[in-house]
């Protein structure tokens, strides 16, 4: 695997839309060619080279390419946009749409990421060592097909509306999550090791939510059905089991109605 390191030297006055910072766009290019890749600052077409110092040469394919992003990229959007393979390491914090629409490969964000990270993600791994913003692993506006595969791990906290319309894949948040996690989800799995706010799992059709901490207000549509012992990431414990959202429509499988399952650690 070849590594390309890009370092922010001239920060944008506004925000930089750099949807070309991905192994797919870099593959097969040397530093000079990467410097010519297009980006936008507002309505002004520009190139990556105007903002970043670029060193190294990319691999022949996305899978052979690793990108390391250094410097202050808090005002850069779309890192790892539509990425399909390879690796992307972001040393600091960054802005919207990290790994949005990604289908494969690995992203490691060492700082915080703003909203819409992993939006409509289909595959790959997205690891955020800091905090994640709102709409993590959610669907694009109007779409009923949210995150459908892959794995997101947040070591810090996550914002609101995470996993909205999720249909598959897994989100793990080591910290707390804000309101409306897994709203409208129809599959997939959310594990929160900290606390969840209210509206958790509202309008959920299918899928699974596991909470280690507290839930400030439980949705009335989640019905308590007992207690179960579960082993989650190596921890074995008792959980209160709820099914829901009872207000929502639910499919039938082999004559049995399928509900979303919510487990809260006792």
């Amino acid at each position: 695997m070849e590594t390309v390191t890009i370092t922010m030297k001239n920060a944008p006055a506004l925000y930089l839309e750099a949807d070309t910072i991905s192994p797919d766009a870099f593959a097969g290019k040397n530093a000079a060619q990467i410097a010519e890749l297009p980006a936008f600052e507002g309505n002004v077409p520009t190139t990556l080279g105007k903002y970043f110092e670029i060193s190294g040469t990319a691999g022949a394919t996305a899978a052979d390419t690793k990108i390391v992003v250094k410097g202050d990229v808090k005002k850069v959007k779309y890192l790892g946009f539509k990425m399909s393979a390879g690796e992307l390491v972001i040393e600091g914090s960054t802005d919207l749409y990290v790994g949005a629409w990604m289908t494969g490969g690995k992203i490691l964000a060492k700082g915080d990421v703003a909203a819409f990270a992993g939006l409509a993600m289909k595959g790959g791994e997205l690891t955020i060592e800091g905090n994640a913003g709102n709409y993590l692993g959610a669907a694009y506006r109007g779409d009923w097909r949210g995150m459908s595969g892959g794995k997101i791990l947040v070591r810090g906290n996550a914002g609101s509306d995470i996993g909205m319309y999720m249909t598959g894949g897994e989100i793990v948040v080591n910290g707390n999550v804000d309101v409306h996690a897994m709203t409208h989800a129809e599959g997939g799995k959310l594990l929160v090791k900290g606390n969840a706010k209210s509206k958790l799992g509202g309008q959920m059709v299918k899928g699974e939510v596991i909470i280690f901490g507290s839930i400030d207000t439980m949705m009335p549509g989640f019905k308590p059905v007992g207690e179960v012992a579960l082993e989650v990431e190596g921890t074995r414990a008792m959980f209160s089991h709820f099914i829901g959202d009872m207000g929502e429509r639910h499919p039938k499988r082999k004559g049995e109605t399928v509900y979303a399952n919510l487990y809260k650690k006792i």
Binding site: G202, T217, G221, M246, G247
Partner: peptide, 19 residues
């Protein structure tokens, strides 16, 4: 708490359990 109340009305329409 409007969201909860709306959800509860939907649950009530389906004659399911409510807190």
């Amino acid at each position: 708490r409007d969201y909860e109340l709306l959800d509860a009305l939907r649950v009530a329409l389906k004659n399911e359990w409510l807190p």
